[in-house]
Design a protein around this nucleic acid. Structure first.
Lengths: 225, 225
DNA sequence: AATAAAACATGACAATTATCATATTATAAA
DNA sequence: TTTATAATATGATAATTGTCATGTTTTATT
């Protein structure tokens, strides 16, 4: 099994602020494993007793609303930490995490890392900054949800996925989502999401290869209102 | 001017985790003042060079969307800290803060408190917990915005204000908001908010005395779908 | 008290979005 | 490969919400 001290993934998240000694200790108690696409990593209301360092793959964080729909609140990709919030507050998770493709993760038990959070100010300051960033993003999403049309939200979602998670060699979005997933990010009915994507296609803003989506005119998408 | 060490307000926020010495130092550089209702405390995009400890009153945190509407993202009341997020990240504020009634605040310069954040792990852990809580709340708001009707959101807003900020002796909500403010919390047109409030009144769920609102049937409001 | 300016209220209509029905594909399983 | 199942697609229609117009009430100002 790999060692945290030598793992390059940690450069991308708060773990980089841990000392060599702390990393060695964490490395000894971590469990490294693979998560199959579609697997629920933790459920809403469940106690998450540690953090996952995502070495590869991507997952969605969602919350079930009363009408039975799953609202996707955030996506966590390679390099990021999953379960940070539950680490800090002693509460159970308010979100469900589900793998969107096959993932490789390292699980670090809460007990090991909580001490570092309380002793290593550089580490906790780093986690704090991360959380502040998440909070800012959440504010932006609230405003988008409240004030923008489904068409605008879907266009922005496509741009966000394009810019943040990248594209395959053929130009299609590297994160493969179902139409239902898109609907659950945007907060609309699946049919509505499908309809809007069809419109985008007709307008030449995107093209599709099966369920793969390729952005053809990003400026056009940005101009939607 | 009062001293932080003796101020009871700090019991309600992260400042309680500072040591006596730290509090004395902060007390010496804080400025205590009154903010008139309607005053913009800081604007979107502005650098907030400190935190405000709210001794009395209430303010709204909002963000202007492209269509010209102000989306209220959070309310900060007596006892809470305002500007926490900007304290942590070095970025400018993504939100505007506006006093909803006359406020009494203490302003603590960023330079004084940032050192404590990096040296006093108990304090930074406390701020971290606070931020984690805000993040959880933001997630809930996202889901509500995305999945619930204006009617439901407005009912929940009334209940939230009732439960979190309390009522006057006559039973009316202690936080007095304009219909426009309600619309900006719920994320709808002012006319729609007014219309729904009128419906609630007709249905006997609320009553109004001028612009004051009194919840008459909280269970009924909860049952709305 | 008179006047002006907000804020509140409601109707009429348009635009957006959800829901239901029903095809048509893809994808997985036998 | 065939069959079953899930995902995608689209039409028709209903429900929700936004916009504009206009009137009333409240609040502030002279």
């Amino acid at each position: 099994m790999g060692k945290c001290e030598q793992c390059i993934i940690k450069q991308f998240n708060s773990l980089k602020s841990l000392t060599k000694d702390e990393l060695v200790r964490i490395s000894n108690c971590k469990t490294s494993y693979t998560i199959k696409k579609g697997t629920v990593i933790f459920e809403e209301g469940e106690a998450v007793n540690g953090v996952y360092c995502v070495k590869d793959g991507i997952c969605k964080l969602s919350k079930l609303s009363e009408n039975g729909k799953d609202q996707i609140v955030k996506m966590v990709v390679k390099g990021q930490l999953l379960g940070q919030r539950s680490l800090v507050s002693d509460e159970n998770s308010n979100l469900q995490a589900t793998a969107l493709n096959d993932m490789e993760v390292c699980f670090i038990p809460k007990s090991e890392i909580i001490a570092d959070l309380q002793k290593n100010p550089k580490f906790s300051y780093d986690v704090l900054k991360d959380m502040a960033h998440d909070l800012k993003e959440a504010d932006d999403i609230i405003v988008n949800m409240a004030q923008k049309s489904v068409r605008q939200r879907l266009a922005e979602t496509l741009i966000h996925i394009h810019n943040s998670f990248g594209v395959n060699p053929d130009g299609t979005l590297s994160v493969l989502l179902s139409r239902e997933d898109f609907a659950n990010i945007v907060g609309t009915a699946t049919e509505s999401a499908i309809r809007v994507l069809s419109q985008f296609k007709k307008e030449g803003l995107i093209s599709t290869i099966g369920k793969q989506i390729k952005i053809e005119n990003i400026e056009g998408l940005k101009r939607i209102e």
